[in-house]
């Protein structure tokens, strides 16, 4: 049987490091916050409506500004303005960074 540790280490690195606050903590929070976007936006295999993945552009500043515009009702939307308003500015920044980094 293969030793378990090599399998465990890379995975739990992500999880375990949030014991200490810092960049890794933000990484974990961002991953979990951004997961709420997936059902509508992950663009796994679809795109009937032409709706783009949150980070179709790997540019966190652009995405962050767009999310804030939804939050502040400054950009027209079908429903994003109804969703984004529930997040804090800091949470939207984390989400924008997550999607931008995940698409690079």
């Amino acid at each position: 049987m293969k030793p378990a540790l090599p399998l465990l280490a890379p995975a739990l690195l992500l999880l375990a490091t949030h014991a200490a606050a810092g960049p890794d903590d933000d990484l974990l929070r961002a991953t979990r916050l951004a997961a709420s976007c997936n059902p509508c936006h992950a663009l796994h295999d679809h795109g009937t409506a032409g709706r783009k993945a949150p980070a179709a552009r790997p540019d966190s500043a652009w995405l962050q500004e767009r999310l804030l515009a939804y939050r502040e009702q400054r950009h027209p939307a079908t429903l994003m303005h109804q969703v984004a308003v529930a997040y804090s500015r800091e949470e939207l920044e984390l989400i924008a960074r997550h999607w931008a980094q995940s698409r690079r």
């Binding site: 059902p39 295999d45 679809h46 009937t48």
Partner: peptide, 17 residues
């Protein structure tokens, strides 16, 4: 009809997840 297309995308997203 735009939301009709969004609805189909949403279902596909849930299936994929």
């Amino acid at each position: 009809a735009h939301e009709g297309r969004l609805a189909l995308d949403w279902a596909r997203g849930l299936w994929h997840e």
